[in-house]
Write a protein that binds this DNA or RNA. Structure first.
Lengths: 210, 210
DNA sequence: ACCTGAACACCGTTCAAGT
DNA sequence: ACCTGAACACCGTTCAAGT
């Protein structure tokens, strides 16, 4: 793998992201990205070892865009964690087609690492320590990535769930009723509502004063 | 699409699942599944319209295996929801390679629908109604699917995170410290701990008596 | 020394040709 | 009427052949 020359190191990733944003994940191919860069297909192999590395760089590009500045120090620990959760959600939902890649590539992204460090700072300031801090961090990440995917899949009030009402009569009565209620729950309210449940649980534990 | 004859309707899906379990998701191809079934590649197209439908059937097979019997009525609402969460986790982690498919295929699985109905039954018995019930259900699903993926990615105490300690000195001090604590937190404890946070938050709300 | 196009081994899917 | 193998248009990647 000799030194690249004509391209900066992040150009292959942003070209790939441009292809994905335009043509979807199915449109991603080495040939398409090379064309986007105006070079021969094999020229791309000068910058990435293989397709997998290219995909990893795309994930890193998207997650690296998460704002990891320390949140407003005047806000409560709860508001600060909410702000961090929103930022992760915002960064990913700017490129929804990339979501499957973020899961397939079980790598430790620097962006997520920086995000985690910022969240841990808030948790620590709130007095959460030791194993409880492990569980709180992992619980938050689990919730946020799950919620992003569920949101990407469409709201409970969406067309997919609307079809539930038309299923064999009375087979899913509560699900039908809940889907009707879901029409009044927006995506933001749903995301923040679930997050609030988690934070209520975290706050209900000892050693949290704010 | 004429009537199939020699195969029952779920054989293509279980053959595909067998291929995935043996060779991983990358090993899944129409040719491989046809061979698994002992038929010509094109014979498979008698049973499924295209590869996408085959993948959808695999997801349905895995999620359809979730135990959705009503949980022990003598247990508290909290224990019953924990039991349901465990069952979903168990069904998916029996076939970890399928996880990416469950995300890519944004379809409404009957298995998840039955699971949701059972969870809603418990929530309703616990006095959770209306929009709060929407948020509780979606929050639980978000957490569980996120946690399954994070678990599949490896524990915080695993080799991936161990490398964090060797990053540029002091760049991620809290993350390093947290990773050390994570060595004492098992996968079950982590899953149930995060779930407990959510349920504490849910239980802290009004109208829950049990 | 650097770059690239042809070629290889795959893939999903079409379709005409077999019985 | 039913089934299937060759063929088509892709794919990631190798590598020898060009300059």
């Amino acid at each position: 793998m000799p030194r690249p020359r004509s391209l900066t190191s992040d150009q292959p990733a942003s070209a790939a992201l441009a292809v994905i944003d335009r043509d979807g994940l199915a449109g991603l191919s080495m040939r398409a990205v090379a064309q986007e860069l105006g070079m021969s297909t094999m020229g791309l192999y000068r910058y990435v070892h293989d397709r997998e590395e290219l995909e990893r760089l795309v994930v890193e590009l998207v997650l690296g865009a998460v704002d990891t500045e320390p949140p407003d120090p005047d806000a409560s620990w709860r508001e600060r964690i909410e702000a961090m959760a929103r930022r992760l959600r915002d960064a990913v939902s700017a490129h929804p087609a990339v979501v499957p890649l973020t899961i397939t590539h079980r790598h430790r992204s620097l962006g997520v690492l920086r995000w985690s460090e910022a969240v841990l700072t808030v948790l620590t300031e709130a007095g959460v320590e030791g194993e409880r801090r492990v569980i709180a961090l992992r619980g938050l990440i689990s919730y946020v990535i799950g919620a992003i995917q569920l949101e990407d899949l469409g709201p409970l009030s969406g067309s997919g769930t609307a079809a539930i009402t038309e299923l064999p009569s009375g087979e899913f009565p509560l699900m039908s009723e809940t889907a009707r209620h879901a029409r009044n729950v927006g995506a933001d309210q749903e995301f923040l509502g679930g997050l609030a449940m988690l934070l209520d649980g975290l706050g209900g534990l000892d050693s949290l004063d704010a």
